[in-house]
Amino acid sequence: MGDISYDDFLKVDVRVGTITRAEPYPEARKPAIKLWIDFGGDIGEKKSSAQITAHYTIETLIGTQVMAVVNFPPRQIGRFMSEVLVLGFPDANGEVVLARPDQTVPIGGRLH
């Protein structure tokens, strides 16, 4: 990948939100969970489909803070409209580990 400018970085709006609801998504091609995430303020609650079933359960996700890109256009994932991209890193087996703050922070905060 090539270098980007600071202005390029500022175009990506990464915010912290709290998962308020989670449901299995058995219709997805790969195992996934439907998430509803509260970003507060002007952003409000947004939906996302995340392939995070290897490390997370519905019960453990509620109340968890996560980081997500909130300024991508919505994307249809099967019958579910995903409005934000939840961020994570692959573990040694390629399974997603969520990117999240190590302390509770106010929802809607922007990554900088």
Rank of each mutant, 00 (worst) to 15 (best):
V96Q: 04
P24K: 09
G40Q: 06
R15Q: 03
R15K: 02
T18W: 10
I52K: 00
T18P: 15
E95H: 04
L85G: 11
V105K: 00
G94Y: 05
K11M: 15
Y6K: 08
D7I: 13
R75A: 15
N93D: 14
G40N: 07
R15A: 01
A68I: 11
P74K: 13
E95C: 08
Y56M: 09
P106G: 11
M1Y: 08
P74A: 11
S48L: 06
I77W: 00
V96D: 00
E27P: 08
K46V: 05
F80D: 08
I62V: 12
I4R: 09
V97N: 04
K47E: 10
E27T: 06
L87K: 02
P26F: 09
N71W: 14
A68S: 13
N93V: 07
D8S: 02
P26V: 12
Q51N: 12
M1K: 12
R110L: 09
G88P: 03
P90K: 11
I43V: 12
G41N: 04
R29H: 15
V69M: 10
G78Q: 12
A50C: 14
I43W: 01
G108A: 10
I43S: 01
T60Y: 13
G44V: 14
G94F: 03
R29F: 14
D3S: 14
N93Y: 15
W36V: 00
V105G: 00
S5L: 03
I107C: 06
Q76F: 09
A68P: 04
G109Q: 02
G41F: 04
N71Y: 14
Q103D: 11
V84A: 05
I19C: 07
R15C: 05
E59N: 07
R110Q: 13
P24S: 06
T57A: 05
R29E: 15
V12F: 04
T18F: 12
Q65V: 03
V14K: 01
T53S: 07
F72R: 07
L87Q: 07
Q76I: 13
M1D: 10
V66I: 08
G17L: 00
A99S: 11
Q103W: 10
E45W: 00
T60C: 15
R110V: 11
G108Y: 03
K11Y: 13
H112M: 09
T57H: 07
I33W: 04
T20N: 05
V86K: 04
L111T: 01
D8Q: 07
T57L: 03
E23A: 00
I4Y: 11
G63E: 02
D42S: 14
A92M: 11
R21W: 02
S48N: 07
L87E: 02
Q76E: 11
F9A: 15
P74L: 12
G108D: 02
I58G: 05
V70S: 03
K34P: 05
K46S: 06
G63L: 00
T18A: 14
R100D: 08
L87G: 04
E59Q: 13
A50K: 08
D102Y: 15
A22H: 01
S82M: 10
P90F: 11
Y25M: 05
G78Y: 09
D42P: 05
A32P: 08
P24H: 01
V84Q: 01
G94C: 05
M1H: 08
V16C: 05
P90R: 13
G17T: 02
I62P: 09
